[in-house]
Protein backbone atom coordinates (compact mmCIF):
# COMPACT_ATOMS: atom_id res chain seq x y z
CA UNK A 1 0.00 0.00 0.00
CA UNK A 2 2.71 2.39 1.04
CA UNK A 3 4.66 1.50 -2.07
CA UNK A 4 1.65 2.22 -4.22
CA UNK A 5 1.22 5.68 -2.71
CA UNK A 6 4.87 6.55 -3.08
CA UNK A 7 4.71 5.48 -6.66
CA UNK A 8 1.66 7.62 -7.37
CA UNK A 9 3.36 10.73 -5.95
CA UNK A 10 6.50 10.03 -7.89
CA UNK A 11 4.45 9.71 -10.97
CA UNK A 12 2.72 13.01 -10.43
CA UNK A 13 6.05 14.82 -10.14
CA UNK A 14 7.04 13.20 -13.40
CA UNK A 15 3.67 14.26 -14.74
CA UNK A 16 4.36 17.92 -13.91
CA UNK A 17 7.79 17.60 -15.44
CA UNK A 18 6.29 16.22 -18.65
CA UNK A 19 3.66 18.95 -18.63
CA UNK A 20 6.25 21.68 -18.22
CA UNK A 21 8.44 20.20 -20.94
CA UNK A 22 5.56 19.97 -23.39
CA UNK A 23 4.41 23.52 -22.67
CA UNK A 24 7.88 24.89 -23.38
CA UNK A 25 8.09 22.77 -26.53
CA UNK A 26 4.72 24.08 -27.66
CA UNK A 27 5.86 27.66 -27.15
CA UNK A 28 8.89 26.96 -29.33
CA UNK A 29 6.57 25.33 -31.88
CA UNK A 30 4.35 28.36 -32.05
CA UNK A 31 7.23 30.87 -32.03
CA UNK A 32 7.10 31.51 -35.81
CA UNK A 33 3.48 32.62 -35.49
CA UNK A 34 4.40 34.89 -32.61
CA UNK A 35 7.05 36.51 -34.81
CA UNK A 36 4.49 37.07 -37.55
CA UNK A 37 2.10 38.73 -35.12
CA UNK A 38 4.58 41.12 -33.49
CA UNK A 39 6.23 42.11 -36.75
CA UNK A 40 2.98 42.77 -38.56
CA UNK A 41 2.60 45.90 -36.40
CA UNK A 42 6.06 47.28 -37.14
CA UNK A 43 7.46 49.25 -40.04
CA UNK A 44 10.42 48.22 -42.15
CA UNK A 45 13.20 49.95 -40.19
CA UNK A 46 11.91 48.68 -36.85
CA UNK A 47 11.99 45.11 -38.15
CA UNK A 48 15.47 45.37 -39.61
CA UNK A 49 16.85 46.90 -36.41
CA UNK A 50 15.17 44.28 -34.19
CA UNK A 51 12.88 41.52 -35.55
CA UNK A 52 12.44 40.01 -32.08
CA UNK A 53 11.49 43.17 -30.21
CA UNK A 54 8.03 43.58 -28.80
CA UNK A 55 5.48 45.95 -30.36
CA UNK A 56 6.12 49.52 -29.24
CA UNK A 57 2.99 51.06 -30.76
CA UNK A 58 -0.01 49.47 -32.42
CA UNK A 59 0.14 50.54 -35.99
CA UNK A 60 -2.52 48.94 -38.16
CA UNK A 61 -1.53 50.61 -41.43
CA UNK A 62 0.23 47.41 -42.53
CA UNK A 63 -3.06 45.53 -42.32
CA UNK A 64 -4.96 48.17 -44.25
CA UNK A 65 -2.36 48.23 -47.01
CA UNK A 66 -1.96 44.45 -47.18
CA UNK A 67 -5.72 43.99 -47.32
CA UNK A 68 -5.95 46.30 -50.30
CA UNK A 69 -2.84 45.23 -52.18
CA UNK A 70 -3.56 41.52 -51.86
CA UNK A 71 -7.13 41.97 -53.11
CA UNK A 72 -7.88 40.13 -49.90
CA UNK A 73 -11.64 40.17 -50.11
CA UNK A 74 -11.77 38.85 -53.69
CA UNK A 75 -9.22 36.15 -52.90
CA UNK A 76 -11.06 35.16 -49.75
CA UNK A 77 -14.38 34.87 -51.60
CA UNK A 78 -12.74 32.86 -54.41
CA UNK A 79 -11.21 30.46 -51.87
CA UNK A 80 -14.52 30.19 -50.05
CA UNK A 81 -16.53 29.42 -53.20
CA UNK A 82 -14.01 26.93 -54.57
CA UNK A 83 -13.49 25.10 -51.28
CA UNK A 84 -17.09 24.87 -50.15
CA UNK A 85 -18.56 23.80 -53.48
CA UNK A 86 -15.81 21.27 -54.19
CA UNK A 87 -16.11 19.73 -50.75
CA UNK A 88 -19.90 19.38 -50.95
CA UNK A 89 -19.81 17.94 -54.47
CA UNK A 90 -17.13 15.43 -53.49
CA UNK A 91 -19.11 14.30 -50.43
CA UNK A 92 -22.37 13.91 -52.35
CA UNK A 93 -21.13 12.07 -55.42
CA UNK A 94 -18.46 9.98 -53.69
CA UNK A 95 -20.90 8.63 -51.13
CA UNK A 96 -23.36 7.68 -53.88
CA UNK A 97 -20.61 6.01 -55.88
CA UNK A 98 -19.23 4.15 -52.89
CA UNK A 99 -22.70 2.94 -51.93
CA UNK A 100 -23.28 1.71 -55.45
CA UNK A 101 -19.90 -0.08 -55.52
CA UNK A 102 -20.61 -1.83 -52.23
CA UNK A 103 -24.16 -2.94 -53.04
CA UNK A 104 -23.71 -3.88 -56.69
CA UNK A 105 -20.68 -6.05 -57.13
CA UNK A 106 -20.57 -5.85 -60.92
CA UNK A 107 -17.31 -6.42 -62.73
CA UNK A 108 -17.13 -2.83 -63.97
CA UNK A 109 -17.70 -1.51 -60.45
CA UNK A 110 -14.94 -3.64 -59.02
CA UNK A 111 -12.65 -2.53 -61.82
CA UNK A 112 -13.44 1.17 -61.30
CA UNK A 113 -12.98 0.88 -57.55
CA UNK A 114 -9.64 -0.84 -58.03
CA UNK A 115 -8.60 1.89 -60.44
CA UNK A 116 -9.54 4.62 -57.97
CA UNK A 117 -7.61 3.03 -55.13
CA UNK A 118 -4.47 2.49 -57.20
CA UNK A 119 -4.72 5.99 -58.68
CA UNK A 120 -3.99 7.36 -55.21
CA UNK A 121 -0.38 6.39 -55.85
CA UNK A 122 -0.08 8.78 -58.79
CA UNK A 123 1.72 11.97 -57.78
CA UNK A 124 -0.01 15.11 -58.99
CA UNK A 125 3.20 16.07 -60.77
CA UNK A 126 2.77 13.14 -63.18
CA UNK A 127 -0.58 14.49 -64.30
CA UNK A 128 -0.16 18.25 -64.25
CA UNK A 129 1.55 18.69 -67.63
CA UNK A 130 -1.00 16.75 -69.72
CA UNK A 131 -3.78 18.27 -67.59
CA UNK A 132 -2.72 21.79 -68.51
CA UNK A 133 -2.34 20.75 -72.12
CA UNK A 134 -5.80 19.13 -72.38
CA UNK A 135 -7.78 21.74 -70.47
CA UNK A 136 -5.66 24.67 -71.67
CA UNK A 137 -4.37 24.23 -75.21
CA UNK A 138 -7.03 21.80 -76.39
CA UNK A 139 -10.26 22.72 -74.62
CA UNK A 140 -9.39 26.33 -73.66
CA UNK A 141 -11.16 25.99 -70.33
CA UNK A 142 -8.48 27.30 -67.99
CA UNK A 143 -8.69 30.43 -65.85
CA UNK A 144 -12.10 29.47 -64.57
CA UNK A 145 -13.20 28.68 -61.01
CA UNK A 146 -15.65 26.04 -62.15
CA UNK A 147 -13.10 24.02 -64.03
CA UNK A 148 -10.93 24.08 -60.91
CA UNK A 149 -13.85 22.74 -58.88
CA UNK A 150 -14.34 20.07 -61.54
CA UNK A 151 -10.69 19.05 -61.16
CA UNK A 152 -10.91 18.95 -57.38
CA UNK A 153 -13.83 16.58 -57.76
CA UNK A 154 -11.68 14.36 -59.96
CA UNK A 155 -8.66 14.39 -57.67
CA UNK A 156 -10.67 14.17 -54.46
CA UNK A 157 -13.14 11.41 -55.24
CA UNK A 158 -10.71 8.45 -55.04
CA UNK A 159 -9.91 8.92 -51.36
CA UNK A 160 -13.50 9.78 -50.45
CA UNK A 161 -14.96 6.80 -52.33
CA UNK A 162 -12.38 4.60 -50.63
CA UNK A 163 -13.21 5.84 -47.12
CA UNK A 164 -17.00 5.73 -47.70
CA UNK A 165 -16.63 2.24 -49.18
CA UNK A 166 -15.00 0.99 -45.99
CA UNK A 167 -17.77 2.45 -43.86
CA UNK A 168 -20.75 1.41 -46.00
CA UNK A 169 -19.57 -2.22 -45.99
CA UNK A 170 -20.32 -2.31 -42.26
CA UNK A 171 -23.93 -1.08 -42.64
CA UNK A 172 -26.42 -3.99 -42.48
CA UNK A 173 -28.57 -4.43 -45.56
CA UNK A 174 -31.82 -5.11 -43.65
CA UNK A 175 -32.60 -1.43 -43.13
CA UNK A 176 -32.46 -0.73 -46.84
CA UNK A 177 -34.43 -3.84 -47.69
CA UNK A 178 -37.22 -2.73 -45.37
CA UNK A 179 -37.29 0.68 -47.04
CA UNK A 180 -37.36 -0.86 -50.50
CA UNK A 181 -40.25 -3.14 -49.55
CA UNK A 182 -42.09 -0.04 -48.39
CA UNK A 183 -41.76 1.24 -51.93
CA UNK A 184 -38.70 3.47 -51.78
CA UNK A 185 -36.58 3.62 -54.92
CA UNK A 186 -32.82 3.04 -54.72
CA UNK A 187 -32.17 6.76 -54.77
CA UNK A 188 -34.73 7.47 -52.05
CA UNK A 189 -33.36 4.63 -49.94
CA UNK A 190 -29.88 6.04 -50.24
CA UNK A 191 -30.84 9.57 -49.26
CA UNK A 192 -33.33 8.65 -46.53
CA UNK A 193 -31.57 5.71 -44.90
CA UNK A 194 -27.90 5.44 -45.85
CA UNK A 195 -26.71 9.02 -46.22
CA UNK A 196 -27.78 10.07 -42.70
CA UNK A 197 -25.90 7.07 -41.28
CA UNK A 198 -22.75 8.27 -43.06
CA UNK A 199 -22.69 11.58 -41.19
CA UNK A 200 -19.52 10.99 -39.13
CA UNK A 201 -17.62 9.83 -42.22
CA UNK A 202 -18.94 12.76 -44.23
CA UNK A 203 -17.76 15.18 -41.55
CA UNK A 204 -14.28 13.61 -41.46
CA UNK A 205 -13.96 13.79 -45.24
CA UNK A 206 -15.26 17.35 -45.39
CA UNK A 207 -12.62 18.42 -42.88
CA UNK A 208 -9.78 16.62 -44.67
CA UNK A 209 -10.89 18.06 -48.01
CA UNK A 210 -11.33 21.59 -46.66
CA UNK A 211 -7.77 21.60 -45.30
CA UNK A 212 -6.45 20.27 -48.59
CA UNK A 213 -8.36 22.50 -51.02
CA UNK A 214 -8.22 25.72 -48.97
CA UNK A 215 -4.43 25.48 -48.72
CA UNK A 216 -3.66 24.01 -52.14
CA UNK A 217 -1.28 26.01 -54.30
CA UNK A 218 0.10 24.11 -57.27
CA UNK A 219 -3.17 23.17 -59.01
CA UNK A 220 -4.79 26.62 -58.71
CA UNK A 221 -1.52 28.23 -59.79
CA UNK A 222 -1.76 26.26 -63.03
CA UNK A 223 -5.49 26.68 -63.60
CA UNK A 224 -6.25 30.23 -62.45
CA UNK A 225 -4.37 32.78 -64.47
CA UNK A 226 -6.04 36.18 -64.14
CA UNK A 227 -5.62 38.24 -60.99
CA UNK A 228 -9.35 38.38 -60.29
CA UNK A 229 -9.58 34.60 -59.96
CA UNK A 230 -6.77 34.11 -57.45
CA UNK A 231 -7.32 32.15 -54.25
CA UNK A 232 -5.82 33.20 -50.91
CA UNK A 233 -2.59 31.15 -51.16
CA UNK A 234 -2.03 32.46 -54.69
CA UNK A 235 -2.61 36.11 -53.86
CA UNK A 236 -0.42 35.82 -50.73
CA UNK A 237 2.39 34.31 -52.76
CA UNK A 238 2.30 36.89 -55.54
CA UNK A 239 1.91 39.67 -53.00
CA UNK A 240 5.07 38.39 -51.35
CA UNK A 241 6.88 38.43 -54.68
CA UNK A 242 5.94 42.06 -55.27
CA UNK A 243 6.91 43.48 -51.87
CA UNK A 244 9.89 41.32 -50.92
CA UNK A 245 11.56 43.94 -48.75
CA UNK A 246 8.61 45.40 -46.85
CA UNK A 247 8.53 42.87 -44.03
CA UNK A 248 5.86 44.53 -41.89
CA UNK A 249 3.44 44.58 -44.80
CA UNK A 250 4.26 40.96 -45.65
CA UNK A 251 3.73 39.77 -42.09
CA UNK A 252 0.39 41.56 -41.96
CA UNK A 253 -0.58 39.80 -45.20
CA UNK A 254 0.44 36.42 -43.82
CA UNK A 255 -1.51 37.02 -40.64
CA UNK A 256 -4.62 37.98 -42.62
CA UNK A 257 -4.33 34.70 -44.54
CA UNK A 258 -3.88 32.63 -41.38
CA UNK A 259 -6.79 34.11 -39.42
CA UNK A 260 -9.67 32.39 -41.29
CA UNK A 261 -8.07 28.96 -40.83
CA UNK A 262 -7.51 29.53 -37.13
CA UNK A 263 -11.13 30.62 -36.72
CA UNK A 264 -12.25 27.47 -38.55
CA UNK A 265 -10.02 25.40 -36.29
CA UNK A 266 -11.32 26.96 -33.09
CA UNK A 267 -14.92 26.37 -34.17
CA UNK A 268 -14.36 22.81 -35.39
CA UNK A 269 -11.45 21.76 -33.17
CA UNK A 270 -13.12 18.70 -31.65
CA UNK A 271 -14.26 17.41 -35.04
CA UNK A 272 -10.94 18.10 -36.73
CA UNK A 273 -8.86 16.24 -34.16
CA UNK A 274 -11.20 13.26 -33.90
CA UNK A 275 -11.79 13.27 -37.66
CA UNK A 276 -8.13 12.88 -38.43
CA UNK A 277 -7.71 10.21 -35.77
CA UNK A 278 -10.63 8.27 -37.23
CA UNK A 279 -9.28 8.75 -40.72
CA UNK A 280 -6.05 7.17 -39.52
CA UNK A 281 -7.68 4.04 -38.16
CA UNK A 282 -9.42 3.28 -41.46
Amino acid sequence: MKYGKAKARDKSILGYFKYGFLCILLLIYLCPFYLVIINSFKNRTEIISNPLGFISKTNVSNFVNAFRQMNYLDAFINSLIITSISVLIIALFSSMTAYFFVRFKWKINRFLFFMMVTSMLIPFQSIMIPLVRIYGANLKLLDNKWILIYMYMGFGSSLSVFVYHGFIKSIPMELEEAAMIDGCTRVQTFFNIVFPLLRPTTLTLIILNVLWIWNDFLLPSLVLISKANRTLPLSTFYFHGTYTADYGLLMAGLLLTIIPVIVFFILMQKHIISGIMQGAIK
Binding site: G154, F155, S157
Partner: peptide, 22 residues
Amino acid sequence: LIFAGPTTFVFLSVVIFPFIFG
Protein backbone atom coordinates in the same frame (compact mmCIF):
# COMPACT_ATOMS: atom_id res chain seq x y z
CA LEU B 1 -25.31 6.53 -64.39
CA ILE B 2 -27.28 7.95 -61.48
CA PHE B 3 -25.01 6.65 -58.73
CA ALA B 4 -21.56 6.37 -60.25
CA GLY B 5 -21.85 8.32 -63.50
CA PRO B 6 -20.64 11.78 -62.42
CA THR B 7 -17.77 10.49 -60.28
CA THR B 8 -16.62 8.04 -62.94
CA PHE B 9 -16.74 10.60 -65.72
CA VAL B 10 -14.90 13.30 -63.80
CA PHE B 11 -12.36 10.86 -62.37
CA LEU B 12 -11.56 9.41 -65.79
CA SER B 13 -11.32 12.81 -67.45
CA VAL B 14 -9.20 14.45 -64.74
CA VAL B 15 -6.96 11.62 -63.53
CA ILE B 16 -6.85 8.59 -65.80
CA PHE B 17 -7.05 10.16 -69.24
CA PRO B 18 -4.38 12.83 -68.55
CA PHE B 19 -2.20 10.15 -66.96
CA ILE B 20 -2.33 7.98 -70.07
CA PHE B 21 -2.05 10.97 -72.39
CA GLY B 22 0.99 11.98 -70.33
